[in-house]
């Protein structure tokens, strides 16, 4: 009986990790679609989000069933409770990747200054790094790494500010609508990273039983 329960816990955690990897991939592809103006790729990201939504819902249902039937306590309870939260943060990341893909679709036939493309790509790379660290911290119960996510998020926030400095340099002939889409995409990327930091807080709770909100990102909201 308890062996079956242990396997269920492992399976649920593996599913959350799989959803997380899918979200990382969606985020990376959405940035690629934006930078390369690839409408087809953008559409693939948009279509791919349904699977994440369904898997998140199924995971929540399965978690509830295990809670109702197995009476988890202590670290098992904290794991199950945290997995649901983590999965919903990931689902939110998936939605934000879709928003980036939609921006890619809107801007595919337009062109703007290379600096902003470079900034978006750089921000995308940094977000990828945060997401990898976030998933790894959950996978390996790595408290140190979970606590480091806030630090990894900081350059993303700084880069986001950089966007506004670049916007100020735009000339009259530059495409303002295109630029607005880029800023929005940068904002979505910054929010994806914030969700990863939130997941780090959940991992901390899962591992220690203490829940302490990390300091607010300097530019959040």
């Amino acid at each position: 009986m308890r062996e079956g329960f242990r396997q269920e816990l492992k399976d649920l955690k593996a599913e959350v990790l799989a959803i997380g990897r899918l979200c990382t991939e969606q985020t990376t592809l959405s940035v690629q679609a934006l930078v390369e103006g690839d409408v087809e790729l953008a559409q693939r990201v948009i279509d791919g989000d349904d699977a994440i939504d369904h898997r998140t819902l199924a995971l929540e249902e399965a978690t509830l069933e295990v809670m109702a039937t197995q009476f988890p306590v202590a670290r098992d309870l904290r794991l199950l409770h945290s997995l649901t939260y983590v999965a919903w943060h990931m689902e939110r990341m998936g939605d934000l990747a879709v928003n980036i893909a939609k921006a890619a679709r809107r801007t595919a036939d337009r062109k703007g200054p290379q600096t902003l493309y470079d900034l978006i790509q750089a921000q995308g790379n940094l977000v990828h790094r945060v997401l990898d660290a976030c998933i790894e911290s959950l996978d390996h119960n790595d408290l140190e790494l979970a606590l480091k996510l806030q630090e990894l998020d900081e350059p993303i926030d700084h880069l986001y500010k950089q966007f506004f400095r670049e916007l100020a340099r735009l000339q009259d002939e530059d495409d303002i609508e295109w630029a607005s889409n880029m800023v929005m995409a940068a904002r979505y990327l910054e929010r994806i990273a914030d969700n990863a930091v939130d997941i780090g807080e959940r991992v901390r709770y899962m591992l220690t039983g203490t829940f302490e909100a990390m300091p607010e990102s300097p530019i959040a909201e």
Binding site: R2, V73, A74, R75
Partner: peptide, 17 residues
Amino acid sequence: LFTTPKDRRTEDYITGR
């Protein structure tokens, strides 16, 4: 005790280990 037991032996017992 049932969410964050302080002792590993308590944790192992209540989680059925």
